[in-house]
């Protein structure tokens, strides 16, 4: 039995690349992080930072070819699953590690009923459960994710449901076997803000009830701030900062994190000119030397263009020379 503080999932030096006609394109360039039991961890970053590829690597769902894990380890409850056999991964998927996706409109199979898709998930990992029992559990799950008319819903098709309801069904499917880890890849990005609030609320509730750890992958710092205990900030395939949510928002130790926080317009208070990070995200593999953020960084120093900083620090780590050497608490005052 694991202790409360032990990580249920641990990623070590994970490197994932895509092998295209133009050669190897690194999508994830060596990342380390861990998720403790019952914790909500945020992985935040802009498009192309490698956050989705990370989640697919954990699930063993990389489109392969062209995607491939080229280095590092993924430990689930102490066991390395980075190169586990497909049959082993099938037992983990849905049962121990479940996943929900960004597009609730297309993530359910349009030609099967909600019941068929939910019951399938239960049956896959509980072969001997009687039919009646599976149905009861499906109804129970649909109720638990806050769907009305659970019994009738089992016979309906996805197109008869709204986006928010479909995402609830996806969550019901993911939670059907009481997984230890739930990976949520931008689960509310496609939803309207009032529906997003409902779904986030539901996820927090389920996290408290079942103690399932959640990896929340998102580009929305608001979602991270309101939901997560710890956060990993990714940029161009690497982790640039990691730590408790409050520390990161209150005292960011990387100019990129700082820039991201500053670029969001406020809902209240004085309207100021928005802070901008100049330029745009580099193409994967285009920067081979120095800090990946150096070309866009306001505080860039000569060494940043030559040497690659390491991720370092205690609980609150960052990958930036500025902080490591000067020990500055904040980039900007």
């Amino acid at each position: 039995m694991l202790k409360m503080s032990d990580p249920v999932l641990k990623v070590e030096g994970l490197k994932t690349s895509f092998f295209t006609d133009d050669g190897e394109v690194p999508a994830v360039g060596g990342i380390d992080f861990e998720v403790k039991e019952g914790e909500i961890l945020g992985i935040v970053g802009e498009s192309g930072c490698g956050k989705s590829v990370t989640s697919l690597s954990i699930m063993g769902l990389l489109p392969s070819p062209p995607g491939k894990i080229v280095g590092g380890h993924i430990y689930y409850q102490g066991e390395d699953i980075s190169h586990a056999k497909e049959s082993k991964m099938r037992k983990l998927r849905g049962n121990e590690i479940a996943m929900i996706f960004q597009e609730p409109m297309t993530s359910l199979n349009p030609v099967f009923t909600i019941g068929e898709q939910l019951e399938e998930a239960i049956k896959l990992h509980n072969q001997r459960l009687p039919k009646k029992e599976i149905e009861n559990r499906s109804v129970e799950l649909l109720k638990r994710v806050g769907l009305p008319r659970a019994k009738e819903l089992l016979k309906e098709y996805p197109h008869e449901l709204s986006g928010g309801m479909r995402q609830r069904v996806m969550i019901a499917i993911a939670m059907s076997c009481n997984p230890k880890v739930l990976i949520a890849d931008e689960p509310t990005t496609a939803l309207d803000v009032t529906i997003q609030a409902q779904i986030l609320d539901l996820m927090i509730k389920l996290n408290k009830e079942t103690n399932t750890a959640i990896i929340m992958i998102t580009h929305d710092l608001g979602v991270v701030a309101q939901m997560c205990q710890r956060v990993v900030v990714m940029y161009a395939g690497k982790i640039v900062e990691e730590g408790p949510v409050k520390d990161i928002f209150n005292h960011p130790k990387h100019p990129y994190t700082e820039g991201l926080i500053q670029s969001i317009p406020d809902l209240h208070g004085k309207k100021e000119r928005l802070y901008t990070i100049k330029g745009s995200v580099p193409k994967p593999g285009s920067i081979t030397k120095g800090c990946l953020f150096a070309p866009r960084c306001e505080f860039v120093m000569d060494k940043c263009r030559v040497n690659t900083p390491e991720l370092s620090g205690g609980e609150h780590k960052s990958r930036c020379f500025l902080h490591q050497e000067q020990g500055r608490k904040e980039v900007r005052t």
Binding site: L61, N95, E103, F112
Partner: peptide, 26 residues
């Protein structure tokens, strides 16, 4: 290539089953 096939994989379903039952009907 569609999302619901990925969902089926994430459930832990076998590929043969996914291809012949899930994908074919669509």
């Amino acid at each position: 290539k569609s999302d619901y096939i990925r969902t089926a994989k994430a459930k832990g379903q076998r590929m043969v089953w996914i291809v012949y039952k899930y994908a074919l009907k669509n």
